[in-house]
């Protein structure tokens, strides 16, 4: 079986190849969008450097925003302004959730900022956004949170500096997009992420938007190699974002508790339908370079 080769990726990513038959018949897999006519090679084939600098700018924009918004949030916590702190919690997390896979590169920083209580090892300290979330919503208080807030503020400033040093290449960016969608399906769709505030849908959208931005920065490679796959992914993002529309409220979203089982099922299926084709992208950008 090892002598078989994958002929599929060059034709279209969603292709099965008969493994060992004499005739390596590609089996086209139904895509969830109508097959668009080949658009032919784009005017210019992008370079890896283009993709990386586009995405790097996006990360830095988001860490800057994270620092500003976290400052407003933690200032409110330190000042004991409960209502204001609650209102600023979800927006402060948004930029973080858009670029989470990058933040995860730096060892203990992600757990310090974003661990849920069950992520904390026995004997460890529970810090970061969710520690404060717990106090704000379950105790309805900011009492004792000032040190946690100061630490959180320091941690995001450290992150802002560190992301400038991160190594990026197009395949890593593509895999990061899949990672963000996996985040959605493992913790956002279940309501585990923001279990006290039920603001999970903010994080949900931020993960998807962040994945879309990562995809956009490498998309040109795929358009040149496999336009059908690119179209499938574009319409997959559109479908997920449209699926969130009914739950929008004001500048944000309704409480996660409003979702019925049928709603979470439908959203989860949309995420899976997008993440599968997206998982084909890394291999294409590697061969395209």
């Amino acid at each position: 079986m090892t002598s078989c080769r994958t002929a599929g990726l060059a034709l279209a990513a969603l292709v099965l190849v008969a493994a060992c038959g004499g005739s390596a018949t590609p089996i086209p897999i139904a895509s969830s969008v109508p097959v668009v006519g080949s658009t032919g090679p784009e005017a210019s084939i992008p370079t890896a450097a283009d993709a990386v600098s586009t995405y790097r700018a996006y990360i830095e924009m988001n860490t800057d925003l994270l620092v500003t918004r976290t400052k407003a949030f933690t200032d409110a916590v330190i000042a004991g302004k409960l209502a204001e702190a609650k209102a600023l919690y979800a927006p402060a997390r948004e930029p973080y959730e858009r670029i989470e896979p990058v933040a995860e590169v730096f060892g203990d920083l992600d757990p310090a900022i974003d661990a849920r209580i069950n992520d904390v090892p026995a004997g460890g300290t529970f810090t970061g956004f969710h520690r404060i979330e717990e106090a704000l919503w379950t105790k309805n208080s900011t009492a004792g949170m000032a040190p946690i807030a100061k630490k959180l503020q320091a941690d995001v400033i450290q992150l802002q500096a560190l992301v400038k040093t991160v190594d990026l290449d197009p395949a890593t960016i593509a895999n990061g997009a899949v990672g963000l969608l996996n985040e959605v399906s493992s913790s956002k769709i279940t309501g585990e992420e923001d279990r006290y505030s039920h603001t999970d849908l903010w994080d949900f959208e931020a993960n998807v938007v962040g994945a879309q931005e990562a995809w956009n920065s490498v998309k040109a490679f795929v358009v040149a190699r496999s336009p059908d796959l690119a179209a499938t992914i574009d319409s997959g993002f559109a479908a997920v974002l449209a699926g969130l529309d009914p739950f929008k409220k004001g500048d944000g979203f309704v409480s996660y508790t409003v979702l019925k089982p049928a709603d979470t099922l439908a959203l989860s299926q949309l995420i899976d339908a997008l993440a599968d084709p997206l998982s084909q992208v890394a291999a294409i950008v590697v061969t395209a370079q």
């Binding site: 078989c4 994958t6 599929g8 990726l9 998982s279 084909q280 061969t287």
Partner: peptide
């Protein structure tokens, strides 16, 4: 008894 596709294909793709 055959797989639906090459199990030892591109290392960068699932």
């Amino acid at each position: 008894g055959k797989p639906v596709g090459d199990p030892a294909g591109d290392p960068n793709a699932p």
